[in-house]
Design a binder for these strands. Structure first.
Length: 346
DNA sequence: GCTCATGATTGCTA
DNA sequence: TAGCAATCATGAGC
């Protein structure tokens, strides 16, 4: 929609324009050379103003500037432009209308939440993210190698965070620059064209939407980078580490001292996890593997069982004790004992 | 490089 | 949902 195309006016009911608009020529254009139109006619009626504007493209730059200046001085100009703005609102401009109060994009919200959770977005936290830190701490508590990797992980996460913020800043700067440029341009143009403040707002909104699409892509690629980093550092299969000797001993001691019921309760698992510096799920994995491998190789396991039995006997003789509860401490365990015995003899 | 040990994962069952 | 069984992937010893 520009000021040189009068088509939107011709679509209006005659009451809107007939007294003002010059007669149309046979090819559908306005007769710029109508004898009633004086080229130097001052901007003192709407018909004349329209004619002056329509013919402005045929003039030299100086002439056009002079006419534009005179036009801006006209007392009718504000009302005239207001009418034209209303016409634009009611006609062609509606095609470009879009809902101004879009619901928040769910994908964007998911990405924002993830970036927050990973410590990429939001205020910087010591040690990076809380969730990833927790999982990394569990992994890193076993040995120094893991601790080093933890540091490496955090360094890489910080790198991603810095890159994300620097890119985000660039996008925001570019968006603001471009928006203010367009606003200035439209305001300048509004001196000679019917551009309402609402139309400017709409244009700003369009620009912001375009830039937010770019931001979305940035957030997506940042999330991907974090995912790749996490899978590289946290993929347990690739980074499998044997538990420390102490941890294995603690677990074996519990296993063989509860051989008839090698099913630690949640509390026992937590205690074992704390003692061994591993997670509860690792304790569960260990007992799962241990039970199945014990069952498969009961001969060899028996030797190991004897070893731990004598060790426990020594501890008992010295008045020590492992601190963990023994077999048949509870009715629940007695029931479990029956269960495991029937399973092992399957 | 091969073999065995071992921690983790997956699919299934009760 | 916990546990079993099979399997994968990696570590460690030789």
């Amino acid at each position: 929609m520009d000021g040189q195309d009068p088509s939107y006016i011709s679509n209006l009911p005659p009451s809107h324009y007939s007294p003002m608009i010059p007669p149309l020529t046979t090819d559908g254009k306005y007769n710029m050379y109508d004898t009633n139109v004086n080229e130097n006619k001052p901007f003192n009626d709407v018909n004349g103003m329209l004619q002056q504007i329509m013919s402005i493209v045929d003039q030299s730059l100086d002439e056009a500037q002079a006419r534009k200046h005179a036009f801006n001085q006209s007392r009718l100009k504000p009302a005239f432009f207001q009418v034209l703005c209303e016409i634009k609102e009611k006609t062609a401009i509606n095609i470009r209308n879009f809902p101004e109060d879009d619901p928040p994009d769910s994908q964007l919200m998911r990405l924002d939440n993830m970036l927050l959770a990973e410590g990429i977005a939001g205020p910087e936290r010591l040690g990076g993210s809380s969730s990833s830190s927790a999982s990394m701490n569990a992994a890193a508590s076993i040995n120094d190698d893991s601790a080093l990797e933890h540091g490496d992980y955090r360094a890489k996460l910080t790198q991603i965070r810095q890159l994300y913020h620097s890119e985000l800043e660039k996008y925001e700067q570019a968006c603001n620059d471009f928006t203010s440029h367009v606003i200035n341009l439209l305001r300048e143009q509004s001196r000679a064209r019917p551009i309402s403040p609402r139309e400017i707002d709409r244009m700003v909104s369009i620009i912001r939407k375009k830039f937010s699409t770019i931001q979305l892509q940035l957030k997506q690629s940042t999330c991907e980078a974090v995912m790749i980093l996490r899978s590289r550092f946290l993929d347990a299969r690739r980074k499998r580490r044997n538990f420390s000797k102490t941890a294995t001993e603690v677990l074996n001691e519990y296993f063989y001292s509860h051989l008839s019921n090698p099913y630690p309760s949640e509390e026992a698992k937590e205690e074992l996890a704390r003692k061994c510096g591993i997670s509860v799920s690792q304790v569960s994995n260990w007992f799962g593997n241990k039970r199945i491998r014990y069952k498969k190789n009961i001969g060899k396991a028996q030797e190991e069982a004897n070893l731990y039995a004598s060790k426990l006997a020594n501890q008992a003789a010295q008045g020590g004790g492992g601190g963990m509860h023994r077999d048949s401490d509870s009715p629940h365990q007695a029931e479990s004992t029956r269960k495991v015995r029937s399973r092992v003899t399957k």
